[in-house]
């Protein structure tokens, strides 16, 4: 039962991450490798708020979201003039920088040892949290994030983002401020990813830099692409698939390092296969073909 709840919580957390990335990938046409970084920024900021300042959970959630928002604005400023593959490379550099910072800024992040014993003295209104409570709250958070993101992407901001996705020059000709709209999309995405990070930090009660690396970003990107981008359910399906499949592999009985390599090879092959035959993913709507053909 504990194991099933554990998987459910992971699926909820990664669904939030995948949905947050879909705001950029599916709705704005910006391939981005930053989700691991924002996941980590949310986790670290809230962990420090909890461990050092003993803030209640709600407050440390706020701290994590504000930290992610700040970094997303900085990133948006520096990538304002990039698009397509160069935007992707810039986000890749951002992810590497943040990963280095997690390891090297030992005074803030605890370095390679990470932060241990992250226990809020109040989790929402509950003082003691069982795993079931946490699973329910994580699920609720995922639903709320899904509703908010659906509300945003189906509304005027979403329509404007779709317009930019198809052609940014024409959109700016129609009076859309491409930079501001992209900044808002990136902020929504980063803040949602930070929510996942806060949940993660308070669930495992221990964080270190290895959870927020480049491969984490690739994993989340693979979830969105495999599940399908531009829809609400696509990222959820992708997250569930990529969390459940490796858990099934666990029962086959391979050594853990070989298993992780095989898992990576699986993700990679899935990416290649989908891009060759079905670029909108399993149940997605956007197929990445709005961009110019080669």
């Amino acid at each position: 039962m504990i194991y099933i709840l554990h998987i459910a919580i992971l699926v909820a957390i990664y669904s939030i991450l995948a949905m947050s990335l879909d705001v950029l990938v599916g709705h704005s046409g910006l391939l981005s490798l930053t989700q691991g970084a924002f996941f980590g920024i949310g986790a670290y900021a809230s962990a420090q708020a909890t461990v050092i300042y003993h803030l209640p959970f709600i407050m440390s959630l706020m701290v994590g979201m504000i930290a992610a928002w700040f970094f997303s604005v900085v990133l948006a400023l520096f990538t304002a003039r990039l698009k397509g593959d160069f935007y992707f490379i810039a986000t890749f550099a951002f992810q590497l920088l943040i990963s280095y910072a997690f390891v090297d800024l030992t005074r803030i992040t605890g370095g390679p040892l990470g932060i241990v014993d992250i226990r809020p003295y109040a989790f929402f209104w509950m003082s003691a949290v069982s795993q079931l409570d946490f699973a329910v709250m994580a699920g609720l958070c995922a639903v709320i994030v899904a509703l908010v993101i659906r509300r945003i992407t189906a509304g005027p901001l979403g329509r404007a983002l779709h317009c930019i996705r198809e052609d940014d020059v024409i959109s700016s000709g129609y009076g859309k401020n491409v930079f501001l709209l992209r900044l808002r999309a990136m902020a929504v995405s980063a803040v949602s990813a930070a929510i996942a990070g806060v949940l993660y930090a308070h669930y495992v009660t221990f964080i270190d830099p290895s959870s927020f690396t480049f491969s984490e970003s690739v994993l989340v990107l693979a979830m969105v692409v495999i599940g399908g981008s531009g829809s609400v359910w696509g990222p959820v399906v992708g997250a569930s698939t990529l969390i459940l499949l490796p858990e099934l592999l666990r029962f086959v009985g391979l050594s853990s390092s070989t298993a992780s390599m095989l898992r990576q090879i699986m993700y990679g092959s899935a990416l290649i296969g989908l891009m060759l035959w079905r670029s909108q993913g399993l149940i997605g709507k956007y197929d990445f073909r709005g961009d110019d053909r080669v």
Partner: peptide, 27 residues
């Protein structure tokens, strides 16, 4: 390219290929 893929499709596919190659080297 012969499937008229966009740059983003090629980028994602090449990322997948990179992951496969790198893990083959690790294996």
């Amino acid at each position: 390219v012969s499937r008229h893929s966009s740059r983003l499709v090629i980028l994602l596919a090449s990322l997948g290929a990179y992951i496969v190659l790198q893990n083959l080297i690790s294996l």
